[in-house]
Each structure stands twice: as structure tokens, then as C-alpha cells.
């Protein structure tokens, strides 16, 4: 019985689901199936239940499930589209889609804005940016005095916060990243172009009769 359940969980998503995900994202059907190989591996790393929990997500990023990190947590929360506390395969594909090289800059800017809007207020607030800076310094063992952090924040907000209300809205963020395009580097994963060569075993598990190019 246990074997049966375990094996059924390893099945690919239904053909219609795969085709729909491919139609609604930058991925081909083959790439969605290759992503399933990756999803299956991450989602079975702690509990083999066909879902990625936060511990498994952190383990995939850091190779260490004990390490709590506000950025990984934030990304996990954004990937958890249905707010169930876990990432299912559809969430995984749709969220990773934003990181595809072919996806519009507008979508990448919107996602990165949400990423830094830690409290979902519709603004990136100075206190949030300070919190993230302190977390980054802690993570990287880098030490900066508080007045240096304040200087960095002042400089950043004087450039980004054009209406000087102490917070950054989406329009200001769009202007800011246009002047600092390197900020969007984290929003593109070139790896996603080659996902089928990274996970070629999808061919043996495919549910789709004719693998679309």
C-alpha cells in the first residue's frame, strides 16, 4: 500500500495540466516536465508528499535546513501563491516563470518590488530596507556601523524616493531599477533555458504523447 501511494505521487501531473502550464508560461511542455523532475527532487528531500515545505526550500537553497533566512523565507512566501504554507507544482512553475529569460522586464520589476515589500503594504519602506540590510550583514559576516547603514539608506532613498515620502512605490521602484539595472540580475535564471538538458530523465516519465518543442 505504502509503495503504491509513494509511486503514484511520483507520477507526472496530468497531461492537461502540463499543457496548460506550458501555454500560460514561457516554458514548453518538455520544460514543464523537466521542471517536475526538479520539483520532485526538492519536494521529497524531507517529506515525500509532492509539496515543497519551507524546510525543503531552505535546504535546496542553502543545503542546510537549519539556516533561517529572511530572503529565502520571503521568496518561499511569494512562491506559495495559494497561501497554504507549501509550494505545489503549479505554484512552482508559475513562480519560476518570472525568472525565465524571456519574461518581460515589467513582470520581473513587479516581482522584485513585492519581494522587498516585506509587509505587503504596497510600498518598500525604509524600515524594511534597513531590516534586510541588517539581515544581509548578519548572513555575510560583514560589519557596518549603524551610522554607515543610515548613510547607505539616505543615499538610496534620495535616489529612489522621488516624492520624498519615506517609502518607495512601484513607479519609483521602476525608475530606480531603470537607473540600476544590475538590481534585476537576481530576477533572471539563465539555467531555465536549459532545463531539459539538466533533467533529461523527464523523457522517460512523460505523460504527454508528443513532447512539444
Amino acid at each position: 500500500m505504502g509503495c503504491f501511494v509513494s509511486r503514484s505521487r511520483r507520477k507526472f501531473p496530468a497531461q492537461e495540466k502540463t499543457v496548460t502550464l506550458a501555454a500560460e508560461t514561457a516554458f514548453t511542455v518538455s520544460e514543464v516536465e523537466a521542471l517536475y523532475e526538479l520539483f520532485r527532487s526538492i519536494s521529497s528531500s524531507v517529506i515525500d508528499d509532492g509539496l515543497i515545505n519551507k524546510e525543503e526550500f531552505q535546504l535546496a537553497i542553502f543545503k542546510n535546513k537549519k539556516k533561517e533566512n529572511i530572503f529565502a523565507t520571503r521568496i518561499f512566501d511569494l512562491f506559495d501563491v495559494k497561501k497554504k504554507g507549501v509550494i505545489d507544482f503549479e505554484d512552482f512553475v508559475r513562480s519560476l516563470n518570472v525568472f525565465h529569460p524571456n519574461v518581460s522586464l515589467e513582470d520581473k520589476i513587479a516581482f522584485s518590488f513585492r519581494l522587498y515589500d516585506l509587509r505587503n503594504t504596497g510600498f518598500i519602506e525604509r524600515a524594511e530596507v534597513k531590516e534586510m540590510l541588517i539581515a544581509l550583514l548578519y548572513e555575510s559576516d560583514m560589519k557596518l556601523a549603524d551610522d554607515v547603514i543610515e548613510t547607505i539608506l539616505n543615499k538610496t532613498f534620495s535616489e529612489a524616493d522621488l516624492n520624498e515620502d519615506g517609502k518607495i512605490d512601484l513607479e519609483e521602484w521602476t525608475n530606480f531599477v531603470a537607473k540600476n539595472p544590475s538590481l534585476l540580475k537576481i530576477m533572471t535564471l539563465p539555467y531555465l533555458r536549459d532545463i531539459t538538458t539538466s533533467f533529461p530523465s523527464f523523457i522517460f516519465n512523460s505523460n504527454v504523447d508528443e513532447v512539444a518543442a
Binding site: L38, L96, E139, T156, N180, L183, L189
Partner: peptide
């Protein structure tokens, strides 16, 4: 670049927690 020469978001984007390339390293 020295940390003080970078803007806050350039620094933040250095976090490993934001580097999703690690997801593919399985």
C-alpha cells in the same frame, strides 16, 4: 565595490537567500 559605495538594494541582492540558482544544484 566597497559596501559603502553600493546602494542598499545592491547590497541586499548579494544575499544567498535570493540566489535561486542554488535550486538547480541538486
Amino acid at each position: 565595490d566597497q559596501p559603502t559605495a553600493m546602494n542598499a538594494f545592491e547590497l541586499i541582492s548579494l544575499s544567498k537567500g535570493l540566489n535561486l540558482e542554488n535550486l538547480f544544484d541538486i
